[in-house]
Write a protein that binds this DNA or RNA. Structure first.
Lengths: 266, 266
DNA sequence: CCGATTGCATTGACCAGACAATGCGTTGCG
DNA sequence: CGCAACGCATTGTCTGGTCAATGCAATCGG
């Protein structure tokens, strides 16, 4: 039987105290010096590095954060509802997947920055759009924010010749929605295929989304098809795990209305 | 402008070399000693701890792992398809959400360990099942494995008096499926509500699922309702992010058949 | 030949410091 | 008063070690 390292014991001890309410969300943890004194008596710890290693475990688990020079604090953040099924619903056009979820929050002002460009798509995009190597795509990149903190990234790709010169390329809000624009072009979106890949963020994503340590992301690839079965649009959403709960519903028969969540988080 | 710490520069440098193919998936990284020599010349690093700190960043990102005493290796693991929509499909009963996804893999043998018990459910379960505090539930806990490595956890909860004495409580495979059992009891499942919470795993989950460092999990809460709108069953799935891609589809009209994925990972 | 032992390279854990960076509160000056 | 300068508690980075644990390979004994 191998003994668990001291720094793990410290992490486990502190984690337990967080989950049992000794350190409620938002409260301050003891400082490194205080912990050194405490665990020095309990486990004979003598180096601050060992305490830091233990705290580091919890930081990487996304449970606490260091606010220099105040100390360590227990994290809690409210999650917004991310509802991928809203995209294909025949609802008022202004209710897109983002404004839809923001509606459920009061007192917070949503905003988005839109940037349109022509790109040589990555292999993943190309595969899903059925493009040949070298064929170009129109990219519509959005950063969606709430009270100026970024909530997710949303990059849509469409075959270039399909939308060249249309409102899709307009760098700003399109009142009737870009999906309506695609509909006017004869490509009404009727089927969506969704993939979620879970992973830790890359450093540039950490910066763009202002992510804390230990926050995983979901890369949501949404491929939408027209009635003839052609892949029309691929959307890459990057969803910070600590700010969202992903929700959808399944029916045995045809669907009816959008559900609400009457429950809190687990 | 603040200078980036040396250990971050090392992590960034190694990360770039991983993503540009200098260190392909599965290959071995230079050892700590080699890196110390290299970055000693480049950045004047003199302590092994600093090298370890840099490597630690990549370990926590789930990009590399340490295999003592061989060295550090670049990670890649194949992802299975996790298809929450399969649960309510009227298909051959043996095709449940897990055997369904395993079908798509050849040469791997699935197995599951089932354990049935009577529990006082947590607040989250209670809320979703609409139980009063103190009311008990039947729990059917499964660990699903592939070639003896755990692939996910699956715990189903049903109000106890609903299934007391039925096949639901049978600790082993139920050939026709437990959902069929619930159907025979007059509670055919017609509507499912799905929530996904992304986070880093707790240490006990790390052990049960044999997770490496830097692997996030999705907690998938599936609440299923009968035709009268009663919540019948809550299932808590714990899905390791590195072993799955979560997939589902949306239709503008009523659905038809299950889709396949012709694409690789991004 | 074969199995047990030993050696060795590598990572894991920990120590005992040093100095830098940060942001908040206080102090003191005009 | 208003504001700049300073002090101070706290975390961040890095040094330069020591000893332990691990698993593989080479060696040795029968």
């Amino acid at each position: 039987m191998k003994p668990t390292p001291v720094y793990q014991q410290i992490a486990d001890d502190l984690r337990r105290q967080i989950s049992d309410g000794t350190f409620p969300p938002g409260s301050q943890m003891p400082t490194e010096a205080e912990l050194l004194e405490k665990y020095g008596e309990l486990h004979g710890v003598r180096s601050r590095q060992t305490i830091r290693q233990g705290l580091g475990v919890l930081v990487h688990e996304g449970l606490i954060e260091a606010r220099r020079p105040k100390g360590y604090f227990v994290i809690q953040r409210k999650r917004l509802v991310y509802r991928p099924q809203a995209e294909l619903r025949q609802k008022p056009p202004e209710v897109d997947i983002f404004t839809n979820l923001v509606q459920e929050e009061d007192g917070r002002t949503p905003s988005q920055e839109i940037e349109v460009s022509i790109v040589d798509p990555t292999a993943a995009i190309r595969e899903r759009l059925g493009l040949a190597p070298g064929e170009l795509a129109a990219a519509r990149r959005r950063v969606r924010k709430l009270d100026d903190v970024p909530y997710n990234l949303n990059d849509s790709y469409v075959r270039l010749d399909l939308v060249q010169g249309t409102d899709f390329m307009h760098p700003g809000d399109v009142a009737r929605g870009t999906n309506a624009v695609l509909g006017e072009l004869g490509h009404e979106l009727v089927y969506g295929f969704h993939e979620f890949y879970l992973r830790m963020p890359m450093p540039d994503e950490v910066q763009r989304l202002q992510l804390g340590a230990g926050v995983p992301v979901a890369e949501h690839l949404s491929t939408t098809f027209d009635s003839e079965g052609n892949a029309v649009q691929v959307t890459v959403n990057l969803i910070p795990g600590d700010r969202h709960v992903i929700v959808f519903e399944t029916h045995r028969e045809a669907g009816t209305d959008a559900p609400r969540i009457p429950w809190g988080n687990p």
